[in-house]
Design a protein around this nucleic acid. Sequence first.
DNA 1: CTCCTTGCAAAGCCTTTGCACGCTG
DNA 2: CAGCGTGCAAAGGCTTTGCAAGGAG
Lengths: 144, 144
Amino acid sequence: MTHCSSFLDKLRQRGYRITPQREMIVDAIAHSDHHMTAEEIFSTIHMHSKALNLATVYRTLDLLVDVGLVSRADLGNGRIMYTSDQHGLHLHLVCRQCGGVVGADSSLLASIEEQLHASYGFTADLHHLCISGLCKSCQNHQKS
Amino acid sequence: MTHCSSFLDKLRQRGYRITPQREMIVDAIAHSDHHMTAEEIFSTIHMHSKALNLATVYRTLDLLVDVGLVSRADLGNGRIMYTSDQHGLHLHLVCRQCGGVVGADSSLLASIEEQLHASYGFTADLHHLCISGLCKSCQNHQKS
DNA sequence: CTCCTTGCAAAGCCTTTGCACGCTG
DNA sequence: CAGCGTGCAAAGGCTTTGCAAGGAG
């Protein structure tokens, strides 16, 4: 059920070489259902294999983004996260206080996408839209 | 017509001191109708006054954001931009290719804001939502 | 066998911070 | 006159890059 193999195939098709490092990185991303930072991907893999360098993670991630297999989402605060692009639209609610990230129903986005295209000719990349704000629990804490 | 004076009043009210540097920075932001990076604010001011340091711009910007006069928008790519918060909701379309920023009608956002609050108890901070994608002209160029 | 990839370490970039001096209120 | 705010320079965090060695095709 993993998209790993299709990921690797796509890389091969484009003429990229399949190395153990790339396999591990693709594996880590494809099997994760949530966003991960480069650092997280690195340490996840590093737990069971030392044959990997952070710089390689960054390079591979750039490559995967270029090829269109992975999308990069900047949550602000310099936190850059990556996810497999196979999940369709995602809406992420990022709490400006606790930093937490909540996934939200992305159906809201469909209409926006259309309207932006119609009105501005702008093709929005809504695979991983991030909206900042205050999450439920942080609001409650503030009421004190 | 400038909000400069009201900005400065608000700072005074909160017990902050009004220095020439703060005046210049407030002035620069209040008179600009678009987003600016700290660097841009700095160099704009630096053209006619050398009495300003980048670190001070950052500190003042932080202060203005805290007080709620200015909002910070992270466009991704590490580009952090600031604007006077007196303009209501803003929607910014950031082109991932040319880096251009187009302002868009923010009426689209109202419904989203409500729905997020209703469904997730999440109070979205939509003063400066940034959506990344491909702008009209970059799409045309790609068709080649 | 070629040359794409990797690891390592250093460099870069933007932002933040420590400290002593200066200026606001 | 007290203490906040500034400039300067150094530190910080994350990401990128140069280079030689190594592995994929």
